[in-house]
């Protein structure tokens, strides 16, 4: 469906002050805040309620088998990916399609690197040691939160790759519409990266 058929894909809606795509993404992100907010709350309550000793006690740093080096590297990768994502949007706004697409590709590569590190060096290592979600309450919430976050990253990669590939045709038809779609993707991407910014310290450092 073209931009002419759908209203307010470029111009802001008079009621919300935003074009409809951006308003929709913010509504979606509000639901995501509730989803991840519930999981963060669950983590806090489980940790506060855990006994100090015994098999149900909260594991210490070493017992979690989480490497701060891998977590830190992945944090750096995601911060860089947010920077490249916003730079892609800036390039499209400046009518520079080639550079914008290059930054999108770098964002996708960084995101794939994040997921690869997560699966290869964290999940595979833990599965090899027979550490699964049913191992303990900590690992249940760890796999739930990081797994859900990884799924969000994979979803973001699919969208970014779509706009690098088949979705790029929209640029020839309507540049502003395409740039707005990249902005919406960027908003989602920043949210997913912001979730990791909170996940990293609570799981790996505290």
């Amino acid at each position: 469906m073209s931009a002419e058929v759908l209203p307010y894909t470029i111009k802001p809606h008079p009621v919300t002050g935003l074009y409809n795509g951006k308003f929709g993404v913010w509504l979606f992100l509000a639901s995501e805040v509730m989803l991840f907010g519930a999981l963060f709350s669950t983590y806090i309550f489980l940790r506060i309620g855990a006994p100090e000793t015994g098999p149900a006690a909260w594991p210490s740093g070493e017992e979690t088998h989480l490497s701060w080096k891998i977590g830190g590297l992945n944090t750096l990768i995601l911060i860089l990916s947010s920077v490249t994502m916003v730079l892609a949007w800036v390039q499209f706004k400046m009518d520079n399609f080639g550079k914008g697409r290059l930054y999108l590709a770098i964002t996708a590569i960084l995101a794939i690197a994040f997921v690869a590190i997560k699966f290869k060096f964290e999940y595979a290592h833990k599965f090899h040691m027979d550490i699964v979600p049913s191992t303990s309450v900590f690992f249940a919430i760890y796999y739930t939160m990081t797994g859900l976050h990884a799924l969000h990253i994979i979803g973001g990669v699919v969208v970014i790759c779509y706009f690098i590939g088949p979705g790029a045709k929209l640029w020839d038809q309507n540049r502003e519409y395409y740039t707005n779609r990249i902005e919406c993707t960027g908003l989602y991407w920043h949210f997913v990266d912001l979730v990791w910014i909170f996940l990293f310290p609570i799981l790996y450092l505290l």
């Binding site: 944090t75 911060i79 960027g186 912001l194 910014i197």
Partner: peptide
């Protein structure tokens, strides 16, 4: 906008 959200992101990234 993405501009505003990016600034918030950079602030949190710096604190992290």
């Amino acid at each position: 906008s993405l501009k505003a959200f990016h600034i918030i992101f950079v602030v949190f990234s710096t604190l992290t």
